[in-house]
Nucleic acid binder design. Sequence first.
DNA 1: CGGGACTTTGAGCTTTCTCAACGATGGTGG
DNA 2: CCACCATCGTTGAGAAAGCTCAAAGTCCCG
Lengths: 254, 254
Amino acid sequence: MRDVPFARRPITINPVNSPTSGQCEDCDARHVGLCDALSDEDIGFLARVAQRVVIPAGKTFIEEGDPASHFYDVNQGNVRVFKSLADGRRQVTGFMGVGDFLGLAVSAQYAFSAEAITDVNLCRFERAPLLQVFAEFPALERKLLDVATHEMVIAQEQMLLLGRKTAIERVTSFLMSWLERSEPFPVGASKPAAAKLSLPMSRTDLADYLGLTIETVSRSFSQLKRDGLIAFTDVHEVTLLKPQRVAALTAGDR
Amino acid sequence: MRDVPFARRPITINPVNSPTSGQCEDCDARHVGLCDALSDEDIGFLARVAQRVVIPAGKTFIEEGDPASHFYDVNQGNVRVFKSLADGRRQVTGFMGVGDFLGLAVSAQYAFSAEAITDVNLCRFERAPLLQVFAEFPALERKLLDVATHEMVIAQEQMLLLGRKTAIERVTSFLMSWLERSEPFPVGASKPAAAKLSLPMSRTDLADYLGLTIETVSRSFSQLKRDGLIAFTDVHEVTLLKPQRVAALTAGDR
DNA sequence: CGGGACTTTGAGCTTTCTCAACGATGGTGG
DNA sequence: CCACCATCGTTGAGAAAGCTCAAAGTCCCG
């Protein structure tokens, strides 16, 4: 399912948008991100202007420079957001998951591209109708400001990583932040034990996210393996054997 | 005036905050950024909760990790925003100027530090009162969302620079983006002639912004000088002799 | 079982960094 | 008013981290 190369599966659009909130009940993103700002009574007004969209793995659904006609909210799966240079160099600016909001743009064009890493379920919103809902529910706009602010904090952290950290620091920093995202609530456990993580993205994605080459990413992983800090069960599944020692290599903020 | 090293001049606070809009009339930031969202009639309600603050060059006025008690709006001068690692490595995440808004934070602590590059005039807002004004004037909150979104676009561009561009590309990219900021309205002139730019920040600031060392920044400038693309009248004043040829070196977006 | 895509490992190279010295500039005090 | 000193910026030479190129290994599917 994941990463079916050049899948020919078409984008699926579910046009059934009842004004009831029924369709949101079983959504993984119901209580995170934007949607969390609305009560069960109000969520229907947002759902009414939403289109459920399924994007097959590998598919580009936002193209840098294209008219910024839609907003997206991720319900399921993982997305890479990136910018490219004319000669093909690429910078992944973030990996988006459940509850993340995509497509914020001041200008009329998207400033970035977005591709499905895994098969992805999205809610797609047209610009104008969504802005109308915002006008009716200020809580949405406030939430969006929170989201944007939080993204800014993450972006600054990433600039620090890209501008000033070594390869090993970048890789371990990524592992720890990905761990945090995977386990929003690390219950108890002052001495965190081993943690298994799924890494849906390719080494290329990772390299382009960390400002490295795939070879350097691979060598960094190998070094961490040799040192007994991590172990791979699968290329896309890593276990942090010594999370604290991994964390110690991240060169965290002062 | 600029860069008085370790100035002992104290922070000046002007407590006179009349509820009239009078004090905003001659402010350089009146019609940019946040304040631009309010009419002359309404601006007084914002001014009422503002404190005018003067920060001497070199002074840190936001410290990473401190309680995020205030917001700031730059009225005059330049500010560097940065994050640091425990061992002193520093990443400047942005240079802020007139009309820029500072201090957005989701968490209770600032995620970054801010220092005055030149002497700086700020409007300082306490958290709670400002949020109240936001509640009364939704246009402010919307504007803030625009601002945050725009900052996100700039941050993504900077990640691309830090992760994927060469030294010369970083320096020329910086020059062109600084040029854009200095001349928000490049009237006419399809063939832009030479443009003189003020670079208030130090080479260290620049290096920490571009993810380079000061030596590499210096060498890049020297190369551009040798090639006849730029010329320095002063260390902090550069003239782009061939803006288009400089632009050609930036490896812009595809 | 074979082929293609992805990942890992190795060897040599390039860009940028580090260390060092020199030069310029501006503020201060004699 | 000028000389000195501290700070900042420039230039050079050698070192190193990470990149490029190459080849071998792995895994998933058909």
